[in-house]
Design a protein around this nucleic acid. Structure first.
Length: 821
RNA sequence: GCCCGGAUGGCGGAAUGGUAGACGCGGCGGCCUCAAAAGCCGUUGUCUGAAAGGGCGUGCGGGUUCAAAUCCCGCUCCGGGCACCA
């Protein structure tokens, strides 16, 4: 009997060895075909929880699997180390964000190392490092020069909890902050934006060719929100110089436009409002300002109080009818032109409004016979529409646009929901925006040779809601790089999503001190072959990264031909406890440490791989510890099987032998398992890969017991260890080394021999009227006639037929015969 | 409201038109042991039966097919995303 498996000693020893031997370090001139596996770099929140473990286990399996397959795998790791929690901790009287963050990084890194996940640690990136800040800022100033970054005033989202403005993407649909949950307010501020909308179409259309989960692509499509329609100009009665432009996706319904509606913030409101209507209009404007976004977008509010007549009239260009101009809070100034033509017959919201205000309804599409009442937005034949009558909706849309364009009343127009990305944050712990404000020269970018602009250490963290940089004289007051005169430094820092929008490019050559991105290295490794992370990043991080990859190419900072950063995206499920996602901020964390100590990293990894499909959420429940214990028990079995018999005698055993009986059976199982596990790894089928390995283990145990040739069994065990190596790397490495004096992670991935995997006898199912009546062992090579005659020879079948003659016989040799009577 | 998932034993799950429940957890029985732990062997959807066997069975109701967890139609429930976006 070999000694008990000392997982703690073995695991830590191999972890050191992989680092010392540089097993997973890769050079950029490596001759193997490149392969880039990346798990989203984490915000360092301290010790890992089970969500991290799950994530990094999946990534590590792929790194080790692809390495064994002969790829030169790039597997880097880093930390998204700027962010609010560190600063909030400082305000609450904790350590300086720098020390706080570096302590959390050390904790998380410790967990990841102890898990046995392998990375090229030479390439580690931390977004708060001076070198990363420098290139982040250089990217910003290049965007500024290319008019892709700009400063603009206007209403922005302000989170009172986070004490900073937010990007649209960071506001939930209920109007709350995605981080703090506070109700987001509107504030009028001048802020920095990145021109992501310039890429709307490219970001949208390129989704079609991406090998990403469909739901992520759908979410991005919805977020970009492209709609095609027309802008139409309505003349205003009595004001010959004035016209109102509306945007509509239904230019075919113009003959049914019986009134216009403007957003309360619309620039023409005051001009259009008659004295008689002024009080009513002002009341509505006041209401719209006071309302939160939730109230404003709610469908519950009483419509009667949410609209107001301006007293003015416009002329419908389709039919020259005089139609009233209203205001309503539900029309948004930020979308389209901030004004709509209302077609109550074909839009439910317009219909409801028309009912309240007694406005006419004119149908322009024939409704189906079973249609009752209300707005009808479906397909149909145009009616009451002059030159459009008799056309279908799609044709009428196109014809309307031609008609509008020929008369100068409008034109084709595409609208997007996507807004430019607001990146200013009024916080300390982020990358400073590298500009100064000079009275003489205005906004001046800090030149490349003066970067980085670093955060001063000696600031005061006070709960004032103002960035500590505002009150740091040494930081604030500077000189203008252009004229040398006095200037004020920008005190806003960048959204941390900027940091994470290009780190994957930097990983290809983080040693480069000349430029942010090394073109040659990017061309070698990009795009990321397998990107792994949570679905929570479906919009923000993944959209911004797609934008950055393009924009860096277009401003000459990265190869222009690399448009998409992530070839294949894999979104793992969440780990839940008590019905909620496990996370430190929610305080429902199960630490991996107790498992590292009690059963080891391999057993915990195996649990995460085995418990269910990796895309599914898992609930940490009552039975979880028993399942983990089962994984540990399985590994002890593998260990005994592998180590008890001494060194392996299995080299090329199958090649030298004529196989029959139980030996043949075992060899067949081995080769079938290789095929299935390989297939599973290629499609993230980790749970079934584990199950296949367990089945093979059972088969080897049985073969051992009944005395199958030692060399055959040894070969099977060695292949089992190679299949297990990506999943349980420590145990596989130790056992393989004891048996073969070789490093399993440097061994090639086993190849299946299809001939050896082939079944020669199979179980044929015989059904009568589709019901299972017998199972018969047959040769795999039987033909249809043989299958049928064997089926009719079955006693069970004869009894079931009870003398009746069959109507029809369906044979699928060698698996099935179905007799229909 | 719209869109996308999902529902299978006591539990996690497997099977994507051809043996439902692989693999594991839990349970039950046995071996080993003074005993326990560890380990090993067997068994385990459900009803019926002494057994052989038979009936039923993949959320519900229909349909297609020789054959449906799987495909189609109509529901129910659960999860997620989007939502006065004109």
């Amino acid at each position: 009997m070999a000694k008990h498996y000392e997982f703690e000693e073995v695991e830590t020893r191999w972890q050191q060895r992989w680092i010392q031997e540089g097993t997973y370090e890769i050079e950029n001139d490596d001759v193997r075909p490149p392969y880039y596996v990346l798990s989203m770099y984490p915000y360092p929140s301290g010790q890992a929880h089970q969500g991290h473990i799950r994530n990094y286990t999946f990534g590590d399996v792929l790194v080790r699997y692809r390495t064994m397959q002969g790829f030169g795998v790039l597997s880097p790791f880093g930390f998204d180390s700027f962010g609010l929690p560190a600063e909030n901790a400082a305000i609450k009287g904790g350590a300086h964000p720098l020390e706080y963050t570096e302590a959390r990084i050390a904790e998380l890194k410790q967990s990841v190392l102890r898990l046995g996940a392998v990375y090229d640690w030479r390439r580690e990136i931390r977004s708060h490092d001076a070198e990363y800040i420098r290139f982040n800022q250089m990217i910003f100033t290049h965007l500024l020069k290319n008019d892709l970054a700009y400063r603009k005033g206007g209403l922005v989202n302000w989170c009172p909890g986070c004490q900073t403005v937010l990007a649209n993407e960071q506001v939930e649909s209920d109007g709350t902050c995605e981080r703090s949950g506070d109700l987001v307010e509107k504030r009028s501020l001048e802020q920095w934006f990145l021109r992501i909308t310039k890429y709307s179409d490219e970001l949208l259309f390129a989704l079609d060719d991406l090998d990403w989960p469909e739901r992520v692509k759908t979410m991005q499509r919805n977020w970009i929100g492209r709609s095609e329609g027309a802008r139409i100009r309505f003349l205003v009665e009595g004001l010959p110089e004035t016209s109102i432009e509306v945007y509509t996706t239904r230019p075919d319904t113009g003959f049914g436009a019986t009134y216009l509606v403007l957003a309360p913030e619309h620039a023409l409101v005051d001009l259009l409002t008659t004295d008689q209507q002024r009080d009513e209009v002002n009341a509505l404007k006041a209401l719209a300002v006071a309302e939160s976004d939730i109230e404003r977008q709610s469908t519950d509010g009483e419509l009667a109080k949410r609209g107001a007549f301006t007293g003015s009239f416009a002329i419908n260009p389709y039919n020259n009818e005089r139609i009233p101009i209203y205001l309503a809070d539900y029309v948004l100034s930020s979308y389209g032109t901030g004004a709509i033509m209302a077609v109550p017959a074909e839009d439910q919201r317009d219909f409801d409004f028309a009912q309240i205000y007694g406005l006419p309804v004119v149908r322009t599409v024939a409704t189906p016979p079973d249609f009752l009442d209300g707005a009808y937005s479906g397909e149909g034949i145009k009616i009451n529409s002059g030159f459009l009558d008799g056309l279908d909706v799609a044709t009428a849309k196109a014809r309307s646009i031609e008609w509008l364009e020929s008369r100068g009343f409008g034109s084709r127009s595409v609208q997007y929901r996507l807004r430019d990305w607001l990146i200013s944050r009024q916080r300390y712990w982020g990358c400073p925006i590298p500009v100064v404000f000079c009275e003489k020269d205005g906004i001046v970018a800090v030149p490349d040779d003066q970067l980085p602009v670093l955060l001063p250490r000696d600031v005061q963290f006070l709960p004032t809601g103002e960035s500590p940089l505002m009150s740091h004289a040494g930081f604030l007051h500077t000189t203008c790089p252009t004229c040398g005169g006095p200037a004020r430094r920008e005190t806003d820092t960048m959204d941390t999503f900027v940091d994470s929008s290009w780190y994957f490019l930097r990983f290809t050559d983080p040693f480069n001190t000349e430029t942010a991105v090394n073109f040659e290295a990017v061309r070698h490794f990009m795009p990321v072959d397998q990107y792994i992370g949570g679905i929570t990043h479906a919009i923000m991080h993944l959209l911004y990264s797609r934008f950055f990859t393009r924009v860096l190419g277009d401003v000459g900072l990265s190869p222009e031909e690399i448009r998409e950063p992530f070839g294949q995206l894999f979104c793992q499920g969440m780990v839940r406890l008590g019905g909620r996602a496990m996370s430190k901020s929610r305080g429902n964390v199960i630490s991996p440490d107790e498992y590292f100590a009690s059963i080891g990293a391999d057993a915990l990894r195996l649990f995460h791989l085995f418990v269910g499909p990796p895309t599914d959420d898992i609930d940490w429940g009552d039975q979880t510890n028993e399942i983990i214990e089962g994984c540990s028990r399985y590994l002890r079995r593998v260990w005994r099987l592998a180590v008890d018999g001494g060194p392996s005698d299995g080299a090329a055993a199958t090649a030298a032998k004529d196989l029959d009986g139980e030996s043949r059976l075992l060899v067949r199982t081995v080769h079938q398992t290789i095929m299935k596990v390989t297939e599973d790894f290629d499609h993230y089928g980790f749970n079934t890969a584990v199950a296949e390995c367990m089945s093979l283990t059972n088969a080897i145990t049985r073969a051992n017991r009944i005395g199958v040739d030692r060399a055959i069994v040894d070969e099977a065990i060695d292949i089992l260890l190679r299949l297990l190596a990506p999943m349980v790397p420590h145990l596989a490495a130790e056992a393989f080394e004891i048996r073969n004096n070789a490093h399993v992670h440097c061994a090639p991935w086993p190849l299946a021999d299809p001939d050896l995997a082939k079944e020669d006898r199979v179980t044929m199912v015989v059904q009568v009227n589709g019901k299972l009546r017998d199972r018969i062992e047959v040769s795999a090579s039987i033909d249809e006639q043989e299958a049928i005659s064997i089926a009719f020879g079955s006693g069970q079948v004869i009894a079931s037929l009870a003398g009746k003659s069959p109507n029809r016989v369906v044979a699928r040799p060698p698996n099935l015969v179905n007799i229909v009577v």
